[in-house]
Design a protein around this nucleic acid. Structure first.
Lengths: 242, 242
DNA sequence: TAGATTGTTAATCGATTAACAATC
DNA sequence: TAGATTGTTAATCGATTAACAATC
């Protein structure tokens, strides 16, 4: 079956294919709707959304359409309904249990981040190689020895794995996850992982992201020399002389 | 001046404009080269790189070309030279000092992450509103009260700010940063920030990223029912029944 | 009704991929 | 020389933006 065609779910509902850029915008829309809900308004237009998020209204409309959400000409979308539909589509009403491997600084931060649960992600257990960490709890969650991962993942039907180990260990962890039947890996280690075809990897590579940031900054400093204050002028000059 | 044209730096060197996707791949190339260096080989071809990173060789070549790196037909690129050129372009030989605001879990994790320094990012100080945190040190770095940020940023010519506060406070922090002459914000809070035109924002929104991941997982489970083991079949079935 | 907003099709833009000549 | 690999131009693909009719 072509991935481009609309898929049929077991219950007959159609599953729309939404492009990744569009997908990443949906949570932004939802967030804006929450703010707007506080104002008491009951409808929104794509113009409203686009204005706040600095996006083309047409793009917003296309995104909503791609998810199968329809509005009413002249009126826009009903706020509450739209929020529901987005939550539904994003799966925020369900719970996906996940394992996290690597109870270091970053791992601990993710374990302590409660907001993920609102997005349907529940990190249930952490794993680590370091015996000084295993057996402890971090933010209330058990840290188990790594060798238990694969077996437990299978028995608990865990589908999502989060990798926050150093780059050198990441591939080995990914292998264990694949072995345990995990189907999606959220990889925070700065390496590209090789996995079996049915295991998808989503890279959160802060190094790459940082490279993009520095470069954008550098380009900006070149193109638009600051015009506002002495201090900032000096700063820009200092940066250029690097 | 059109941002699309090649820019001229004060020293006459041309500054190439590289697309963001390409930019984010450059660190991956560098990483592969480091691995390869360990094997003792002295040259690489785009095919080698593409094979390891699962990228089209033509794309690799285009990326390198866009940065102004040239190779030799039939030979490829000299490993050491290529690494140097990438580091040069990415600015990893210089140091960019940065301020971080929000000494919570995530903030602390970033403060403790030494690898950023290899990429030219040095987080020099942290800031927080919480008086129980200010005055302390995290991973050796001072945590100062937020009100000192703007003034200090100006005096130290800090150009990069990192935001790891809750969504509700992020905009206020961004305003302070802009006031302090900061020109680039790495924003980990799940909100879109509004900043003056000359301040660029790079969003690292894990919520959005998670949405993309869950959705990809969901789509994969629909399209390719697992064929390998009983356990994983059960897992997939369980997920579908959600 | 008039006008704002959706729905939908077409145009543009940019990035990726393909093709092929140049070259070491 | 022969063949692998770069350099470079063209084709494809997908996402964004523009245009405009339908509609409440």
């Amino acid at each position: 079956m072509n991935i481009k065609t609309q898929l049929q779910r077991p219950d007959g509902t159609r599953l729309k294919i939404v492009s990744e850029p569009a997908l990443k915008r949906l949570p932004l829309y939802h967030r804006f709707l929450m703010e707007r809900q506080a104002t008491g308004r009951e409808t929104v237009s794509c113009t409203d959304i686009g204005l706040d998020l600095d996006l083309d209204p047409t793009q917003v409309r296309k995104d909503l359409e791609s998810v199968g959400i329809v509005g009413r000409p002249r009126i826009g979308y009903t706020l509450a309904t739209l929020m529901d539909q987005l939550e539904q589509f994003l799966g925020w009403n369900n719970v996906n249990e996940a394992f996290l491997v690597g109870a270091g600084n970053l791992g601990a931060a993710l374990l302590g981040y409660r907001k993920f649960e609102e997005c349907g992600l529940k990190i249930v257990t952490a794993f680590d190689l370091d015996p000084s960490k295993t057996g402890t709890r971090i933010h209330g969650k058990h840290v188990l020895p790594l060798e238990k991962l694969s077996d437990l993942a299978q028995r608990m039907h865990i589908l999502i794995g989060i990798i926050t180990v150093p780059a050198t260990e990441a591939q080995a962890v990914a292998d264990l996850m694949a072995e345990g039947g995990i189907r999606a890996i959220w990889n925070f280690a700065p390496v590209r992982l090789h996995t079996p075809e049915h295991v998808i990897v989503h890279n959160e590579d802060l190094h790459c992201s940082l490279a993009a940031l520095s470069q954008k900054l550098f380009a900006t400093l070149q193109v638009k020399p600051q015009k506002t204050g002495l201090a900032s002028k000096a700063a820009a000059a200092a940066a250029l002389s690097n």
